[in-house]
Amino acid sequence: MRSFTTSDLNKQVGEITDAARKAPVIITHHRKPKFVLMSVEHYDRLRSADDPRRAYGPGETPEDISARFAAELDRLARGEGYDDED
């Protein structure tokens, strides 16, 4: 991911927004990442319920996903699916 400073943003807004149209860019302040600039289309894809990478907050996880996690945790708790080399 490309990175620019807040100073760059003031001087090169056209170049930075062109880069952000293609892929998200990081904006740093005092050498630390502070912001991400991206196209609205990219943001909408991230926010889409169809995106399998979607993150859920506490209490937001759909029941079907929650049930799959619970089943997998139960399976692992029973010791199935991996080798214990102890």
Rank of each mutant, 00 (worst) to 15 (best):
R78S: 13
K32E: 12
S3Y: 01
E60K: 10
D44G: 04
R31L: 07
R2H: 10
M1W: 06
L73F: 12
K32I: 03
K22T: 11
K34H: 08
D86P: 02
Q12F: 05
K22P: 07
N10Y: 04
D86G: 01
S7Q: 03
K22N: 05
A67W: 09
D8T: 07
D74N: 05
G81I: 00
S39A: 14
F4P: 00
A70W: 03
E80L: 03
D84W: 01
D44M: 15
R31G: 03
V36Y: 07
G57A: 12
R21L: 09
R75E: 01
R21A: 12
A67K: 14
S66R: 14
V36M: 06
T6H: 05
D50N: 15
D18R: 14
K22S: 05
A70M: 08
P62I: 13
E63L: 03
F4A: 02
A77G: 14
G57Y: 11
Q12S: 09
G81N: 06
T61C: 03
R21T: 00
D64R: 10
I65K: 15
I65F: 04
H42E: 07
I27M: 02
G59K: 00
R68Q: 08
Y56F: 10
V36K: 07
E63K: 03
L76P: 01
F4N: 10
A70F: 00
G79H: 03
I26P: 02
D83K: 00
T6P: 02
P33C: 05
L73G: 05
H42S: 09
A77Y: 04
P62S: 03
H29N: 08
T28D: 02
S48Y: 11
L37W: 13
P58V: 08
D18N: 13
H42Q: 06
A23F: 13
T17H: 12
Y82H: 04
P58R: 13
R45F: 03
D18A: 13
Q12A: 09
L37D: 07
L9G: 07
V13I: 14
E63G: 00
R54H: 12
I26N: 03
H30V: 06
E15P: 00
Y82N: 10
H30F: 04
R2D: 06
R2L: 00
K32P: 11
S7E: 05
L9E: 07
D86M: 05
H30T: 14
P58N: 08
K34N: 13
G81F: 08
R45K: 15
R31A: 01
P58K: 11
H42P: 10
V13T: 02
D50Y: 14
